[in-house]
Amino acid sequence: MGQLDNMQYNDCGMPTFDTKDLVIREDIMAKAKELAELIGTSEEVEHFKKAEQKIQNHERVQGLIQTIKKKQKEIVAFESFENKAMVAKIEKEIEELQDEIDSIPLVTEFQQSQSDINYLLQLVVSVIRDTVSQKVNVEAGTEAAPSSCD
Rank of each mutant, 00 (worst) to 15 (best):
residue 2 G to W: 09
residue 2 G to N: 15
residue 8 Q to S: 09
residue 8 Q to R: 13
residue 9 Y to N: 05
residue 9 Y to H: 07
residue 10 N to C: 02
residue 11 D to V: 04
residue 11 D to C: 02
residue 11 D to N: 13
residue 15 P to Y: 03
residue 17 F to D: 04
residue 17 F to W: 12
residue 18 D to Q: 13
residue 19 T to G: 05
residue 20 K to C: 02
residue 20 K to H: 11
residue 21 D to K: 15
residue 22 L to E: 03
residue 23 V to H: 12
residue 23 V to T: 11
residue 24 I to M: 12
residue 25 R to H: 12
residue 26 E to V: 07
residue 27 D to N: 12
residue 27 D to A: 08
residue 28 I to T: 08
residue 28 I to F: 11
residue 28 I to H: 09
residue 28 I to R: 01
residue 29 M to S: 13
residue 30 A to G: 03
residue 30 A to S: 10
residue 31 K to H: 08
residue 34 E to H: 06
residue 36 A to S: 13
residue 36 A to I: 07
residue 37 E to I: 05
residue 38 L to I: 07
residue 40 G to I: 06
residue 40 G to V: 08
residue 40 G to E: 09
residue 42 S to I: 08
residue 42 S to A: 10
residue 43 E to C: 02
residue 43 E to F: 04
residue 44 E to P: 00
residue 45 V to H: 02
residue 46 E to P: 01
residue 48 F to G: 01
residue 48 F to Y: 15
residue 50 K to L: 11
residue 51 A to P: 00
residue 52 E to N: 12
residue 54 K to E: 13
residue 55 I to P: 00
residue 55 I to T: 03
residue 56 Q to V: 04
residue 58 H to R: 01
residue 59 E to I: 09
residue 59 E to C: 03
residue 59 E to P: 05
residue 60 R to M: 08
residue 61 V to F: 10
residue 62 Q to Y: 05
residue 67 T to Q: 15
residue 68 I to L: 06
residue 70 K to D: 14
residue 71 K to H: 11
residue 75 I to W: 01
residue 76 V to Y: 10
residue 77 A to C: 04
residue 78 F to C: 03
residue 79 E to S: 13
residue 80 S to Q: 15
residue 81 F to Q: 14
residue 81 F to N: 11
residue 82 E to Q: 15
residue 82 E to W: 06
residue 82 E to T: 05
residue 83 N to W: 01
residue 83 N to V: 00
residue 83 N to R: 04
residue 83 N to D: 15
residue 84 K to A: 10
residue 88 A to W: 02
residue 88 A to T: 12
residue 89 K to G: 01
residue 89 K to V: 02
residue 90 I to H: 00
residue 90 I to E: 00
residue 91 E to P: 00
residue 94 I to A: 03
residue 95 E to K: 15
residue 96 E to R: 04
residue 97 L to I: 08
residue 98 Q to W: 03
residue 98 Q to S: 11
residue 99 D to G: 11
residue 99 D to P: 00
residue 101 I to H: 00
residue 107 V to H: 05
residue 108 T to I: 13
residue 108 T to A: 14
residue 111 Q to Y: 09
residue 111 Q to F: 06
residue 112 Q to T: 14
residue 114 Q to F: 08
residue 115 S to L: 14
residue 117 I to H: 05
residue 117 I to G: 04
residue 117 I to P: 02
residue 118 N to T: 09
residue 119 Y to R: 13
residue 121 L to R: 10
residue 121 L to F: 10
residue 122 Q to H: 07
residue 122 Q to Y: 06
residue 126 S to Q: 14
residue 130 D to A: 04
residue 134 Q to G: 07
residue 134 Q to K: 15
residue 139 E to V: 06
residue 140 A to C: 06
residue 142 T to H: 05
residue 142 T to S: 07
residue 143 E to D: 07
residue 143 E to R: 14
residue 144 A to P: 01
residue 145 A to G: 06
residue 147 S to E: 15
residue 149 C to P: 01
residue 149 C to L: 04
residue 149 C to W: 05
residue 150 D to Q: 08
